[in-house]
Design a protein around this nucleic acid. Structure first.
Lengths: 153, 153
DNA sequence: CAGTATCCCTCAAGATACTG
DNA sequence: CAGTATCTTGAGGGATACTG
């Protein structure tokens, strides 16, 4: 996200991308969400260079998505664990995974998230109204900040 | 996505990011999902340089996410419209928006998606089992391709 | 309006060597 | 194991001028 951060754009997607927009960030997050915690494991799992991994982990820690701390079992080891903020990204990662599996991965080759108690697949993420009704894209509007906060006041 | 594409990684998130991982792609998608169709409108809305916008639109068209075609109302104008594949990204964009609004945007300043018939907010995207039960992160497993396809066969 | 054509610059990313 | 230190590269991105 070097040249010009998106922070000035009045858009939560932009703000999210200022934290996650770099090439490796969401993949690191995917690993973290599936239980990876150690530097060397991220490295192996992703095939990422050490310096890049180091930089990305640092930025994710700075942004409060991961927490860095010594392992409980062995104080010499370091663990990167998800914060609540990081854990909350599971919908983003799963949404990407579901889209990727459907449209970009050769059928049957993609790993999948599943319910570890039953083995069942996750339901597709879908847009719903607060009352639970399914929404189509055409039902959805996007409310500018001025129209929302300002006009409401 | 220059140096080394993620295509070789056995991960649908990686494959999705090969299409969407560049800085502007998801923001362009957000615009497209909220009805933006013309080059100049993307340009104004995002404050993106023309050459970059041109390149991103081209790549999104190549990847089947957008479709480029003359406007129906004025054949001299060009429109970029979402394909089904592109429309299917709404969950990704909304997931990012919800996360960004919650964790990165100053309270109340972020635009929001809403039900345009009722004005109600969208429900938070949440992970559910096929039967509709809410799932927590700890309930979720991630199944490697070998363990899935190979072992199943 | 919807782009192309240039030029420039920075930084993400890669490779490798080294350290506590 | 978990990084830091360097060096290099090449693409992504920005600005501006120009065109059908």
């Amino acid at each position: 996200m070097s040249p010009a951060p998106f922070a000035h754009l009045p858009c939560p997607v932009a703000h999210a991308l200022d934290v996650l927009g770099e090439r490796w960030s969401l993949l690191i997050l995917r690993d973290a969400l599936t239980g990876v915690r150690r530097f060397a494991d991220f490295e192996r799992s992703l095939g990422i260079a050490k310096n890049i991994l180091s930089a990305r982990l640092k930025s994710l820690v700075e942004n409060g998505v991961l927490e860095r701390r010594p392992s409980k079992s062995d104080a010499r080891e370091v663990e990167y664990r998800l914060t609540d903020k990081g854990r909350d990204l599971v919908t983003v990662v799963v949404a990407l995974a579901q889209w990727g599996a459907r449209w970009e991965s050769p059928a049957g080759t993609a790993p999948r998230f599943f319910n570890r108690h039953t083995g069942a697949q996750l339901a597709l993420l879908q847009l719903r109204d607060v009352d639970g009704a399914l929404l189509r894209l055409s039902d959805i509007g996007y409310e500018a900040p001025s129209a929302a906060a300002s006009a409401a006041a």
